[in-house]
């Protein structure tokens, strides 16, 4: 590597450090980095996310976690299209390597590969911990920081570890690409149904409601229960988080199976049979 390149790297890193440090130091010395006029917006959101006051009854999202409320209630359509972008990306990967995983399984009858016994045992213990942390992030998504994508990405680490330590041949006996895609589709159908569930309830009562409605609004008095006895449920937020976790975790699983397939198998598939 040339000396000039090294100098350029050091200078650009130094400039980045100075820039970041200035922003942080200004916050530390009491200058608020976003001007205080912006903060009134935050006040509005904090007032309306969880408010039992009758004045806010038809505005509040009834979820103590402001970020999840904004992601799935205030801006539900944005998140729906983000999920569909990831869906399209996975459809592309599936279309390129169609049939590759089935062909792989046909060729090898007995399991082979994988790491040593120590690594396998530790992985067996660790995946239980990863899965439970991911589930708690998901199911508490409307109470504490976290939510569908965070929980799903955490759970997706477990199949990745399984593939690497136990080899793709053994993993394919548990979860194949088609199984992962089926579970992912169940998650997507669940998200789509959750967007319409209040409308469906309202139509069954002979009335109308909004799409992506969560709590009762001024002109439509239907909604999912926001709390039951001592538990805060958050209405549709819990449903959205659960189904998003399914979609993200098994979407990543399908992608990892496709990425780790041996090249000679995939090359034949991409070339086609002419």
């Amino acid at each position: 590597m040339g000396n000039t390149l090294q100098v350029v790297i050091i200078i650009s890193l130094t400039l980045m450090v100075i820039g970041l440090a200035m922003v942080l130091a200004m916050g530390g010395f009491g200058f608020t980095v976003p001007p205080s006029s912006v903060r009134s917006l935050a006040t509005i959101f904090l007032n309306t996310t969880f408010n039992l006051d009758t004045k806010y009854r038809y505005v509040s999202a009834m979820s103590p976690e402001a970020v999840t409320a904004i992601v799935w209630d205030y801006r539900g359509l944005d998140t729906l299209f983000e999920t569909s972008v990831m869906f399209i990306a996975i459809v592309g990967a599936l279309a390129i390597s169609r049939g590759a995983s089935e062909k792989l399984l046909k060729g090898f009858s007995k399991t082979r590969g994988g790491m040593s016994l120590i690594v396998k045992t530790i992985t067996r213990i660790i995946i239980v911990m990863i899965a439970s942390v991911g589930l708690s992030i998901t199911l508490h998504g409307h109470l504490t920081p976290g939510g569908g994508f965070q929980g799903g990405a955490t759970i997706a680490v477990a199949p990745m570890l399984l593939i690497i330590t136990f080899s793709i041949y053994l993993f394919s006996k548990m979860i194949t690409v088609s199984k992962a895609v089926t579970l992912r589709s169940i998650g997507l159908i669940g998200i789509a149904l959750s967007a319409f569930i209040v409308l469906i309830i309202a139509i069954l009562h002979g009335d109308l409601a909004y799409i992506f409605q969560n709590q009762p609004k001024l002109y439509s008095h239907y909604g999912l229960p926001s709390y039951a006895e001592v538990m805060v449920l958050g209405g549709t937020l819990l449903l959205f988080n659960t189904f998003e976790t399914l979609a993200v975790a098994f979407g990543f699983t399908a992608l990892f199976i496709l990425f780790i397939l041996p090249e000679e198998v995939v090359k034949d598939i991409i070339k086609g049979e002419e």
Binding site: G147, A153, T154, M160
Partner: peptide
């Protein structure tokens, strides 16, 4: 920003 923290750990370190 705990939400970003929870996304960054599995995506940035793991996946």
């Amino acid at each position: 920003a705990p939400d970003i923290f929870l996304t960054y750990i599995p995506v940035g370190v793991g996946l």
